[in-house]
Design a binder for these strands. Structure first.
Length: 423
DNA sequence: CGGTTTTGACCCGCGC
DNA sequence: GCGCGGGTCAAAACCG
C-alpha cells in the first residue's frame, strides 16, 4: 500500500508542474540556442517515458521491483525539474533583457534623431563646453554613482553576435547565479531611490498588482482635490516598497500609482508583471541616463516604452524627470493603442521608430500575425538589419550606447562596434 | 483579537 | 528663521 501511495504521489507530481507548461514551452521554442532546445527535448522525452513506465508497470511490477528503481527515477525527475527551473529562470532574464535592450534602442534612436537634426544641434550647448558640463553637474553626480554605472558590468551572459542576446550560453549558469544577478540589480536600483509612476485607467490590472499593501496615510496634495493614499508593502516583514495612489484631477478614471523601492521578499507570480515593468523602466532609463543628460533640458525626455505587460497594455509613453533627489519615470498607459502610432516627436516619421528605416517595416504593425514577444524579437531583427545596412547609424548608435554603458553593455553592444567584420 | 484603515499631529526639506 | 507642502507616525476606530 505504501508503494502505491508513493507512486500515486509521484505521478501527481508529474502531472502538476509548478509552472505554466504552455507558456514556458512556447517561450523556450523561441530561443534558438542549441543547448536549451536540446535540453528541453531531452527533458520532455524523459518525463514522458517516466509516465509511460509508471502506467505500464502499475501496480504489479512496482511491487515486484526494488524500491531503488523508484528512487532512481525520483532523482532523475528532480534533476529534470531543476533543469526546468533553471531554464525558466534564464528565460525570464532573457525576456527582461530583451525588453530593456529594445527600449534602449528606441532611446538611442531618439538621440540619433535629435543629434542629427540641425535645429536641435543649434539647441545643444556649444562653444564653451565647460558651461554645459557645469550646468548638468549635480544630476550627473547623482547618476554617475558607481552602483549605477557598474550595473552592466556584472552581467556574465554571452550572446551571439547576430541575435542581440537571444542565444545564451546556458550550461554554465545555474539558478542561484541568475537570482543573484537579479537581486544585485534590484538593490542597485533601489539605492537610487528612483520612482516609477504609472498612469493607468481604473480597469488596468495595476489595481490588483499581486502584492499586499497596507495603507499608512492619506493626504490631499496641493493642486489636486483627490486625496493621495500612501501604501506600504505588507508581504515582507520590513519590505521597503511603498506606493502612492491618486486619482487624476482632470480625468477621474485615471489612477496615478507611484512605486518606490524594491521588494526584499519573494514576489508572488501575480506581482511579477508589474515588478518587471518597473524594473524595465528603471533599467532602461538609468543605464541611458548619462547620455540623456548630456543633452540637458534641450532634449525631450519622452519616449515610447515597450513594457513586459501583455497587450493591450504593452506600450506606454514614458517620461523621465531627472532629479538629483528623486528622479521619476512616468509610464502613461492611458492612451489608446491607436494613439501610439500617432505619437511622434518627429515630423517625418509616423512609426514607432523615431526615424525612417529604409526598406524595413515601419512599425510593429509590420508583423500582424505575431504575438507580442515575437514582435519584439522581430523588432530586434529589423533594427539589426538596419544597423548592418547603414554604417553611419551603426556608428552613431554605438557612440551613444557606449557612452552610457562605458563599453560594457550586458547585452554585448560592442558587437555593434565592429562594422568592418559584418561589412 | 489581530490586521487594516482613518486621521490629526509631527517631521523634514525646500524656497523665500 | 519662517512658512509651506509632502511624507510619515501612531493612536483610535473599524472589520472580519
Amino acid at each position: 500500500m505504501e508503494d502505491k501511495g508513493s507512486t500515486k504521489k509521484f505521478m501527481e507530481d508529474d502531472e502538476k508542474p509548478s509552472y505554466d507548461d504552455n507558456n514556458i514551452d512556447s517561450q523556450i521554442k523561441k530561443t534558438d540556442g542549441p543547448s536549451s532546445s536540446h535540453n528541453n527535448t531531452q527533458g520532455s522525452t524523459l518525463l514522458l517515458s517516466l509516465s509511460l513506465n509508471n502506467t505500464t508497470q502499475l501496480p504489479h511490477q512496482i511491487q515486484a521491483k526494488p524500491q531503488i528503481q523508484i528512487g532512481k527515477l525520483r532523482v532523475k525527475l528532480e534533476e529534470e525539474k531543476k533543469e526546468n527551473e533553471n531554464l525558466k529562470a534564464m528565460l525570464n532574464v532573457v525576456n527582461e533583457r530583451c525588453i530593456v535592450l529594445q527600449n534602449r534602442l528606441l532611446v538611442a534612436m531618439h538621440m540619433h534623431q535629435i543629434s542629427s537634426s540641425p535645429q536641435n544641434n543649434n539647441n545643444l550647448p556649444k562653444g564653451n563646453g565647460q558651461d554645459a558640463e557645469k550646468s548638468m553637474l549635480p544630476t550627473r553626480q547623482f547618476f554617475d554613482e558607481p552602483s549605477s554605472s557598474d550595473c552592466s558590468k556584472k552581467e556574465g551572459f554571452q550572446n551571439n553576435e547576430n541575435s542581440m542576446g537571444r542565444n545564451f550560453a546556458c550550461e554554465n549558469i545555474n539558478e542561484g547565479e541568475i537570482n543573484k544577478k537579479i537581486e544585485d540589480e534590484s538593490s542597485e536600483v533601489s539605492c537610487r531611490r528612483a520612482r516609477v509612476s504609472i498612469r493607468a485607467r481604473s480597469d488596468f490590472s495595476l489595481m490588483m498588482d499581486g502584492c499586499q499593501w497596507r495603507k499608512y496615510g492619506q493626504k490631499t496634495a496641493k493642486g489636486n482635490p483627490c486625496p493621495r493614499a500612501y501604501y506600504r508593502c505588507s508581504m515582507g516583514t520590513s519590505c521597503p516598497v511603498r506606493k502612492q495612489v491618486q486619482r487624476c484631477f482632470k480625468d477621474e478614471s485615471v489612477f496615478i500609482t507611484t512605486y518606490e523601492g524594491n521588494h526584499n521578499h519573494q514576489l508572488p507570480q501575480a506581482a511579477k508583471p508589474i515588478a518587471n515593468l518597473i524594473s524595465s523602466a528603471l533599467n532602461t532609463f538609468f543605464t541611458n541616463s548619462s547620455t540623456s543628460l548630456q543633452y540637458g533640458n534641450n532634449l525631450s525626455n519622452t519616449f515610447l516604452f515597450s513594457s513586459p505587460l501583455s497587450p493591450p497594455n504593452s506600450n506606454a509613453i514614458a517620461t523621465f524627470s531627472p532629479s538629483p533627489t528623486c528622479p521619476i519615470i512616468t509610464l502613461d498607459f492611458t492612451l489608446p493603442p491607436s494613439n501610439f502610432l500617432q505619437f511622434k516627436n518627429h515630423k517625418q516619421s509616423s512609426s514607432l521608430f523615431p526615424f525612417p528605416l529604409q526598406g524595413y517595416p515601419q512599425s510593429f504593425e509590420g508583423f500582424p500575425n505575431m504575438i507580442n514577444n515575437e514582435r519584439k524579437l522581430a523588432l530586434v531583427d529589423v533594427v539589426s538589419e538596419a544597423i548592418a545596412k547603414d554604417p553611419s547609424l551603426k556608428a552613431t548608435l554605438f557612440a551613444a550606447m557606449s557612452s552610457f554603458t562605458n563599453g560594457s553593455d550586458p547585452l554585448n553592444i560592442n558587437n555593434l562596434s565592429q562594422p568592418s567584420k559584418s561589412d
